[in-house]
């Protein structure tokens, strides 16, 4: 793994960081679109009417803590502690799944309360932004599960801890995006109808 690269950095990790730089523009566009439309709720519910801040706070906290378990998984594999690595990978995936479960619950509740995908520009922008984030989390869960499977096949060892590190970077990135979404979309006072 100690490839001789010009910068001394591994190709994979550098590529992941370049990709994350690119992702900033993707989520930036989605968040800006949402901000543009947060007042455009037409006849449907307004964000201030419908957001359930206590509920979202809990799921936000869950996702935040999954960053901790992710970094613990990495620390474990880096010192060759395969057992704890598996434990923390599994915990991270589970916390991610809880977050996604929360999102599914939130979406179904909103739909029941009359906020469908096509209700208003606000609803389209909201579901698209949080949906994109949810897809990112789900892909992260798939990657974590793939890591777990390859660990049980004996293919995830201290030597390829970098794989865990790179998937971890992705995971943390998805988490920091949610940090922004939680504040900007949920906590900043929202218009009511």
């Amino acid at each position: 793994m100690s490839e001789e690269t010009t910068t001394g950095l591994s190709h994979n990790k550098l590529a992941m960081w370049v990709f994350l730089g690119s992702e900033c523009l993707l989520f930036g566009a989605l968040i800006s679109t949402y901000l543009l439309y947060r007042n455009k709720f037409y006849d449907g519910p307004a964000p201030g009417d419908i957001f359930d801040i206590p509920f979202t706070s809990v799921s936000s906290f869950v996702l935040l803590m999954s960053s901790l378990t992710m970094v613990l998984a990495l620390a474990a594999i880096q010192r060759g502690d395969i057992r704890n690595n598996r434990l923390w990978l599994l915990t991270t995936a589970l916390l991610g799944a809880v977050f996604i479960g929360g999102q599914v619950y939130e979406f179904t509740t909103f739909i029941r309360e009359g906020l469908g995908y096509t209700t208003s520009p606000f609803s389209s922008a909201f579901f698209t932004l949080t949906g994109f984030h949810g897809v990112h989390v789900s892909l992260g869960i798939v990657m974590l599960m793939s890591l777990l499977i390859s660990s049980y096949r004996g293919k995830l060892t201290q030597k390829n801890s970098e794989t865990v590190e790179i998937i971890g970077l992705y995971w943390h990135f998805v988490d920091v995006v949610w940090i922004i979404i939680f504040t900007v979309i949920y906590l900043v006072p929202n218009p009511t109808s």
Binding site: V18, G21, S22, E23, L25, L26, A29, L30, T33, Y37, Y42, Y117, T118, T119, S120, P121, S123, S124, A125, T128
Partner: peptide, 26 residues
């Protein structure tokens, strides 16, 4: 690297509007 995600979002918004009736341009 930095410009492709922007067109990606624009194209997604258009696609969702056409395929699923989203209201980005309504």
């Amino acid at each position: 690297v930095f410009a492709m995600p922007v067109i990606a979002v624009a194209l997604f918004l258009l696609m969702f509007s056409r395929q699923f009736g989203a209201n980005f341009f309504n």
